[in-house]
Amino acid sequence: MGDIQLASAQIQVLQVLTIVVFSPLVSGAIAHLEARWQGRRGPRILQPYYDLAKLFSKETLVPEDAGWVFVVGPMVAFMCYMVVPLLIPVLTTYPMPLGYMGDILGGAFILALAGFSVALAAAETGGPYAQLGSSRAMTFGALIEPSILFITFTVALLTTTDLPYFEAAAARASLSQVIRPAHLLVALAFFLVVLNDTGRIPVETHSSTLEFGMIDEARTLEHSGPLFALLRWGSAMKQMILYVLLVNVFVAPWGLAGSRAAGSVLLAIVILLGKAFGVGAIFTVIDNSFSKLRLFKITEFMAGAFLLAILAVLVLYLGGG
């Protein structure tokens, strides 16, 4: 097994497949763990797969006044989420051939395009809650953007490139690279960004049914059947992509495959799942120990993320760590 060498294209496809296939599993495991810690029995770990299967077998209902954007939006978003894993270190320490297509900003743009197309599809329906969700998602997306930019600047200053592979390689290179203040700050800032973008507790209650507190969740209210399945699956993929970025670029870029041997690539998949469950467990703890911020207090959270990101740049700029 260990002697079989995989072609670059195969590993590249495997990266996408890992995200596509296992993202509902990660979501299911997190939901299960969260319920357990709240003293509930919780859904099965495989529940998201059953949900998707059920939704795909239903018919698609389109609101009367909605046009083609309503149908195309979720598909575009799903495709965007399939493109991003090509650019980031999912399984390997070495960049894949298509990994040079885009840098961190490129990945962020594609994720933003996905968010935009979902918001457009939601706005197309004319449903009040869906429109409220899409306008909120766009507003808060714009507010978190400065933090993402400054995180990118920090990575650029740390590695002189803005390819995620090099940031991960730098962190693997030595311990002093990991504990340098700029790296710690940027990892923490990215953690907060992930918390925001996955709709977790200080910002949004992801499992809530109360429309007034919803941001991302409200956008999908008007969709049903296969389109809703695509949206659900897409948000699970987005969550796993962000987890992968967090662990494999900033926090724990260890355990990735260093060679093309099939054995080490498969091992990397297993380790990645372990790391994703670990991150999910941390998010679950946060979910269970804090309360949701009021909508107008979310800017305070974002100011915190921005503070960490800008301090990282400043510390580097002044010739320090």
């Binding site: 002189t160 730098a170 504990i179 340098r180 203040p181 301090l311 320090g320």
Partner: peptide, 23 residues
């Protein structure tokens, strides 16, 4: 990865991290 040469030592990295905690 040329900037790797100017990585602060573990000492100054740790000291700066502590000063950052203060801030």
């Amino acid at each position: 990865m040329t900037l790797l040469g100017v990585v602060p030592s573990t000492f100054s990295g740790g000291a700066e991290a502590l000063a950052l905690v203060v801030l």
